[in-house]
């Protein structure tokens, strides 16, 4: 085995198409090392959520993977039988979704929703699952677990719901968590608490995170590595510190200039230059051309 096999997640040349033949993922390659946070950043339609869904095996039926490999801790997901693949993904990964209200069943109390996954999918005893959940609720700084476990989702605030889902995600000690815009729906002060919490649990548990976001501010704070996406293509990939020190791709530079920055109002909120978008369109057309006709 080569060194890459040690990656927590390794995606190589992943391409996916819609029924009309349009590529929604364009030869995406990226890796997430154990205990590392990799941000996937891009605007709507960039394919960042699609990558997360591909990893978790929950792509919509209309999206078909036509090329490429996904390796979870060295195991090639494409080579496994569907059942074995689901078991492996279920045991080693977890999701922190964007909208906790749609992720939680509105008609069930929080407690059973949290233990369900541990008992039914991982086969833990009810008692063990219960103990574990309480431990995690404590880690996400929920002071009154008794009350929260008995609540229905609508009885909790947005920040509390997100804490519950973070606790649930970490409970089974997954190796990899896909966090899909987990703070987008939250107020800034709550967002900061939640990001802090995710970072702390991630460090303590040594979990790798694929962190999907549209906000370069969040990327700068939470991640060590970053992939910048546009139209399903990774246009730039770098260590986060390096990306912010010296962004290479014109699109990355344009995104940075468009991102609001209250400390420097005149240098921020700049509309993306038409030339940059034209360049991107050409780059993508060329990539598609090369992909369809690999030998000229």
């Amino acid at each position: 085995m080569n060194a890459l096999a040690k990656s927590c997640l390794d995606i190589r040349d992943l391409s996916a198409v819609l029924p009309n033949g349009l590529r929604v993922l364009r030869s995406v390659s990226l890796s997430v090392q154990p205990g590392e946070v990799r941000a996937l950043v891009g605007e709507s339609g960039a394919g960042k959520t699609m990558i997360g869904k591909a990893v978790l095996g929950v792509l919509p039926p209309s999206v078909r993977i036509v090329e490429g490999d996904m390796l979870l801790e060295g195991e090639d997901l494409g080579k496994l039988q569907p059942k074995a693949r689901r078991t492996l993904i279920g045991a080693r990964t977890a999701l922190i979704p964007q909208d906790p209200l749609t992720a939680l069943n509105p008609s069930r109390r929080i407690g059973p929703q949290m233990t369900d996954r541990l008992v039914r999918i991982l086969g833990w005893s009810g008692e063990k699952a219960d103990t574990r959940i309480r431990q995690l609720l404590d880690e996400v700084q929920i002071r009154d677990p008794e009350r929260v476990l008995k609540c229905y989702p609508h009885e909790l605030s947005g920040g509390m719901r997100q804490r519950v889902l973070i606790a649930a995600a970490f409970a089974a000690e997954p190796r990899l968590i896909v966090a899909d815009e987990p703070t987008t729906a939250l107020d800034v002060t709550v967002q900061k608490q939640i990001l802090r919490l995710i970072a702390q649990l991630q460090r303590e548990h040594g979990t790798a995170i694929l962190f999907v976001t549209h906000d370069l501010g969040v990327v700068a704070k939470i991640s060590q590595k970053v992939s910048v996406l546009y139209a399903g293509k990774v246009v730039e990939e770098a260590e986060t510190a390096a990306l912010f020190a010296a962004p290479q791709h014109p699109y990355t530079r344009a995104l940075m200039a468009a991102t609001p920055r209250y400390t420097d109002p005149l240098a921020s909120l700049k509309p993306v230059d038409e030339a940059v978008l034209a360049g991107l369109a050409a780059e993508i057309a060329a990539a598609d051309q090369a992909w369809r006709h690999p030998h000229g």
Partner: peptide, 16 residues
């Protein structure tokens, strides 16, 4: 507090 909670697009290890 509101200002401090905004994640600026720049590296700041102390923020979290």
């Amino acid at each position: 507090d509101l200002l401090a909670a905004i994640p600026l697009p720049e590296i700041d290890d102390a923020w979290l």
